[in-house]
């Protein structure tokens, strides 16, 4: 993805910062045209991804670096998100949500991400750490209700 993201945030792996990040995501998602329920799911999925980085990538240490980049996309309309870290790497093929029939605390984050996003791809960064690429598109109702898309959002700075 070559053009600059609409929003880039670098945060420490501190759970107390997550509420601030949720606010930023929700604001951009509203601008893109997501309705309340979709915004709630989108925010939740990104929050779960960040929580996983803090918990598993950095072992709950609060001084790890996490980079969050968000792009508006025009076709399909929605948001693309990349989350990168320098924490412990995991084999992407082993990142799976647990079976929901197995009722127990924990292990729900990956399930929530896969359930709520249109795309979710985990990969190991060549220089260390993990990269998670997410995407969520407007649904038909949101598309119909939204303002026309920018003619070329790749060059839009608004």
């Amino acid at each position: 993805m070559e053009r600059e993201p609409e929003i880039s945030i670098r945060i420490f792996s501190d759970p107390h910062l997550l509420a601030t990040v949720r606010g930023a995501i929700d604001g951009l998602a509203k601008c893109v045209g997501f309705h309340d329920k979709s915004r709630a799911l989108l925010t939740l999925a990104i929050d779960e991804a960040l929580t996983n980085v803090i918990r598993h990538g950095y072992g709950n240490q609060t001084q790890g670096m996490i980079w969050l980049h968000l792009w508006r996309s025009a076709d399909p309309r929605g948001l693309r998100i990349i989350i990168e870290d320098l924490g412990k790497t995991t084999d992407p093929s082993k990142i799976k949500g647990r079976e929901l029939e197995d009722v127990r605390p924990g292990g729900l984050g990956v399930h929530i991400i896969k359930e709520t996003m249109n795309e979710s791809v985990w990969e190991q960064r060549p220089s260390g750490g993990m990269r998670l690429t997410l995407a969520k598109w407007l649904n038909a109702e949101e598309l119909a209700a939204s303002y026309p898309a920018p003619s070329n959002p790749e060059q839009s700075n608004s």
Partner: peptide, 10 residues
């Protein structure tokens, strides 16, 4: 207004 999977786990 908001619960994440940590809250659900609780």
């Amino acid at each position: 207004d908001y619960v994440d999977s940590s809250g659900i786990a609780t």
